[in-house]
Design a protein around this nucleic acid. Structure first.
Lengths: 194, 194, 194, 194
DNA sequence: TATGAATGAGCGTTCATTCAT
DNA sequence: AATGAATGAACGCTCATTCAT
């Protein structure tokens, strides 16, 4: 009964260990043996589940990135007006950074061999995110009260600004709780036409 | 006297070569021998001027960062109203990315061993930048017409948004020329009180 | 009873698989798992019948060598004059190379860890072969018409020459069909006294 | 003055060490570190002169093979009748086996990764050798007194027979000194027409 | 001061073997 | 008896660093 669980479980187990080790030391400093030890298994076992260190790193990042992206899509899909949706996006990023702060910090400091596959995947997620925000803005524009700014620029500005407000929390002092609402507020007034 | 000049010259020469090589391949892929060859000197000579590969990398980044920071201070010091100064900040970042795009891209994709010293230095530059923008905003607030937003949040939002608009140009399509003005415009209206 | 039969059957099955895999890839490139898969059994089962990869390799070669040796003895035992017997020896080698060409080629290109036991066994077979040929020659000498050459040297010369004519067929063009008769003919005239 | 000598000398030094180590243990059992230690240098230095273990092995064998081949050509080129030339070929092989016996034994027991390049090279040497002997035989035939045997078969028979007489000396008792003359004698009478 | 030949620590990966089921 | 998931010893190769010249 647990037999199948053992295999699938071990893959998850290795991915979790990889997450912790890579997050702590970065790609190049992490040794496969460390990850195996962290997972409580032998070094060779890692290679039963992943073909190489790079592949393991890739799978781990893709898993995280996909969980981020699907969570974001879910947040945007929730009913609510533009302000609520932008706030949701901000909260989602903040929560993500809170949960995976160590890993995010690592990725910002030592992303390792960002190969084509991973880079394309991350870019794709980013493009989708920008497009989703653009759609929100376009809908807001249709509903009136929004001055005719380029939605592409506005979306990138908003998402970048969000990162500018939240990312420093990874390293220095956390942004105050009301910073999120304030950020959305500035942005909304910035694109308002009334 | 000329001897010292030669030495200082050779150090610059090595730093320039390091800039090109690191920008091309990232920290971990770059070999000290490549840098020496690029600088037209012997491998051992690098170690006459820098104690290690990491130290060389560090010095190279600090040099760039300082040139960015001093340029930024100069831009902000120029006479002009808030809009002109924010535009100047944006142009400065845009120009920097244009000149050092390859290096910036490398740093985003493989920052290498960002050690305490470098991290503190970069953080310090960032803090100063944020403070300078905050000062601009505070001055603007004093001059009236600005609603009472937290200048720290607003400054981070502006700088982050600027990066969000300009950085994608490193990888995908460049932001349109008017994007900068549009960005500043949205932000200014966002903090306007009239 | 059938149980024992199954065991013996499985051992043969593994040996046959080993023959195919080793013949294809050589000792060092062959993986125990490949042999197990070829035999249609699990990897661990191989170790129920053979204590190690090396032991399996050894047994496989001994089996082949013994079949070669017993076939050779049978050929030599057949009634006929010297010429017919030497021709029989040649045909036996040619047939063996035809049937086990791949394996023979492998053994010539990558014999693997030829340990004492195997080496002694192969040497023993070779010595017996040489002795059998010497006996033939001695008998021929007794029957007259043979000049007094050292039978040991003559036997080695004949067997080596045979290999020199037939072995190249493993790699480059096959020896023409009449080459065998011609070889025996040259040799017989070489030792003739008339 | 010895500066250039140092480099060329080190390559020879490594090749000599490789010859000894490979001859002793075979390709797969030999560790690069062993060869380096035998050469009295560091492990990394081997890679300053050879790109890989396989390449080193290859170069070593090619060096030996070429020295064998050029020596053989020299021997055949010496003035003398057919008997003297065939004797010379035999002596050359015997001397080679005496000097490089350990290596030859190794190569027969564990030739390692005989790659295309090496195999082609060795085959080429063998083909040339066969052709040179064929030419000798054809010249002998033209001079009369030789019955019309296929020179290709005869040459292969002679060279194989030579190996059959001399190679056993690598492992068991050495062939008696007169074995060589006897071998040539049998062969010459075998192809004689008088 | 400048050099580059020499070094060896360090790590990713393979695969024969084991053993719990 | 049969299995295959798990193991870890073993080794080729890289490259930052040293040091004799």
């Amino acid at each position: 009964m647990e037999a199948t669980g053992t295999q699938a479980g071990k893959e998850k187990q290795i991915l979790a260990a990889a997450r912790r080790i890579f997050a702590t030391t970065g790609y190049y400093q992490a040794r496969v043996e460390d990850i195996a030890r962290e997972a409580g298994i032998g070094k060779g076992t890692v290679y039963e589940y992943f073909t190489s260190k790079e592949e393991l790193y890739l799978q781990m990042l893709l898993e995280i990135a996909d969980s981020y992206a699907s969570g974001l899509a879910e947040v945007i899909g929730r009913p609510g007006d533009l302000r609520e949706k932008l706030l949701g996006i901000g909260r989602h990023l903040r929560d993500f950074l809170q949960e995976h702060g160590q890993l995010a910090r690592m990725f910002l400091q030592d992303p390792g061999p960002v190969n084509r596959k991973l880079q394309d995947h991350l870019l794709q997620i980013r493009r989708e995110t920008v497009q989703q925000v653009e759609k929100l803005l376009a809908a807001g524009a249709a509903a009136g009260h929004m001055r005719p700014v380029d939605t592409g620029v506005a979306a990138r500005f908003f998402l970048g600004g969000l990162a500018g407000v939240l990312l420093p929390g990874l390293i220095e002092e956390l942004a105050p709780p009301e910073a999120l609402a304030m950020t959305v507020d500035i942005f909304l007034q910035g694109i308002d036409s009334s």
